[in-house]
């Protein structure tokens, strides 16, 4: 078997009223791979991601990162795990402190983990901003002065500035216009390849999932319905539910195969 980075084994999350938001899910993510998790509202996809991120505690099962139990970790191990694992959320506006400049937002993780001195941190922030396609002057800006796409670029910069092994993304482009979404997805793919990141990408949008994922997991009502390569899941789904989801997507290119250059404009 290939080198497993994230191993999720028998993970369940029960909330009140006896409903399992996530119900006995087992899956793994290999090094350098992007696993897309797709599902409708209430499927448990975000809850699962949050359990990997150590934001929601599983009711049962285990989650390991590089063989270490994420939830058993403490002290130095925990700090190490957090450094390795970074997140990008749907609405960066609400995950930034509105009163902090972008420079301060990007410096924070480096300071917390005691990386570099002031000068080297500033250099790293500059390089990272350039990498995500933002001008160096962005450091003195505040979140509200940026567009949604620019904010999501900052969120990606904040995630990768730690040089993590794993990036977890929860609907990172759902609030963006399609033209901006295309740019952010492109950036996400490039950075992932460049840094050899392992990632988990959660979305309700099947087409977005297809575009970014190597493998795809389909969830419904907390359960893992099927998992396989993106190509296999979308062209030959095993489950009726996956088939129904695919059929429900209003996709312009199902009816119309327009002769448009795929790469132009993005």
């Amino acid at each position: 078997m290939s080198d497993t980075v994230i191993q999720i084994a028998g993970v369940t999350k029960s909330f009140l009223r006896g409903v399992n938001a996530v119900d006995d899910v087992t899956l793994s993510v290999a090094r350098g791979e992007t696993l897309g998790i797709v599902g409708e509202s209430g499927s448990g996809k975000s809850t699962l991601l949050r359990m990997i991120l150590r934001l929601i505690r599983p009711s049962a099962g285990s989650i390991t990162l590089d063989g270490r139990d994420v939830w058993a970790a403490s002290g130095r191990d925990l700090k190490q795990a957090r450094r390795q694992m970074q997140a990008v959320f749907q609405d960066p506006a609400s995950s930034f402190n509105p009163r902090q400049s972008i420079g301060a937002i990007l410096a924070a993780p480096l300071e917390v983990h005691g990386i570099g001195d002031r000068a080297s941190r500033a250099r790293r922030i500059g390089e990272t901003l350039e990498r995500v396609g933002l001008p160096a002057t962005t450091v003195s800006r505040y979140p509200h002065q940026l567009s949604g796409g620019q904010r999501q670029r900052v969120a990606i910069a904040r995630a990768v500035i730690m040089r993590p092994a794993v990036v977890l993304a929860d609907e990172p482009t759902s609030a963006l216009d399609v033209s901006v979404q295309a740019q952010v997805l492109k950036l996400f793919r490039e950075i992932k390849d460049e840094l050899g990141l392992t990632s988990v990408f959660v979305s309700h949008n099947l087409a977005v999932i297809r575009e970014v994922s190597d493998r795809v997991a389909v969830m419904r009502h907390g359960k893992l319905i099927e998992i396989g390569t993106a190509e296999r899941v979308f062209t030959a789904p095993e489950s009726d539910y996956t088939r129904a989801l695919i059929d429900a997507v209003p996709d312009p290119f199902r009816r119309f195969r327009a002769p448009v250059e795929l790469e132009s404009g993005s």
Binding site: V178, L206, F253
Partner: peptide, 8 residues
């Protein structure tokens, strides 16, 4: 059109 992600 070019920006729209697709299953097809």
């Amino acid at each position: 059109l070019a920006s729209t992600p697709t299953l097809f």
